[in-house]
Amino acid sequence: MDQLVEHGYVIVPNFLASAQCSIIFDYARELPAGAWQQAGIGRADQYTTNTAVRQDKIRWLSPALAVERDYLQMMEHLRELINRELFMGLFDYECHLAHYPPGSFYRKHLDAFKGRSNRILTTVFYLNPEWQATDGGELVIYGDHGEVLETVLPQAGKLVLFLSDRFVHEVLPGQRDRFSITGWYRLNASIGGVIDPTR
């Protein structure tokens, strides 16, 4: 919590034990091709796919399935903890599995623009066992002047949290299939009971 307040981001190397990571990793790896969709950029009526910018495939998590529900419940507990400690007013959470085939990437981007999104805090959780530096696929987090703040290997059990509207970041190409869960804690910007913006 202190690091999140001081720096606006935090990297937690062993957020989950390897046995728990393996359950989610095996689940993601064994999903049929039809369970994934090509990831896009933008939201609602601005949503589009552009493989020159982003090449991963995604699957939104749902509480209807046990493995997905367990992860969502864990992140709900984290939301309650962050709100209790930091009074951030985080209202809900959405997340998806992400699969980056070898060579795929996601160019530099922000997850939210100030005043134009209810996404407040981004989470990235990695599922990849025995990932080495030679495998690539790093998350690069940039500072206000374009300097590299962190280069994060996507190793199993590692959780990264950062302020969604502050840090430009990118995913570099990897040499292996790379799996993660990316999510966002959001404020309540609903109108008439409808969360805005929609996915």
Rank of each mutant, 00 (worst) to 15 (best):
M1I: 03
G8K: 05
V10I: 15
P13D: 15
N14S: 12
L16V: 08
S18K: 09
A28T: 08
R29Y: 04
L31C: 09
G34C: 05
A35N: 07
Q37S: 13
Q38C: 01
Q38D: 09
Q38F: 01
Q46A: 15
V53F: 11
V53H: 03
D56G: 05
D56A: 09
K57L: 08
R59T: 05
R59W: 03
W60D: 02
L61A: 04
S62F: 07
S62A: 09
L65N: 07
V67L: 01
V67F: 02
E68D: 13
L72A: 02
Q73M: 09
L81T: 13
E85G: 00
M88K: 04
L90M: 10
H96R: 11
A98N: 05
Y100I: 07
P102I: 11
L110W: 11
D111A: 12
K114F: 10
S117E: 06
I120Y: 14
F125W: 04
Y126D: 00
L127E: 01
W131E: 03
Q132Y: 05
T134F: 06
D135F: 15
D135R: 06
G137D: 04
E138T: 14
V140H: 02
I141S: 05
Y142T: 12
G146F: 02
V148E: 09
V148N: 00
L149Y: 03
T151M: 07
T151E: 07
Q155C: 10
Q155D: 04
K158Y: 00
K158G: 00
D165P: 03
R166L: 12
F167R: 00
E170D: 07
L172K: 14
P173A: 12
P173E: 06
Q175I: 06
D177G: 15
D177C: 14
T182Y: 03
G183C: 07
R186S: 09
L187I: 02
N188T: 09
G192L: 10
D196S: 12
P197S: 08
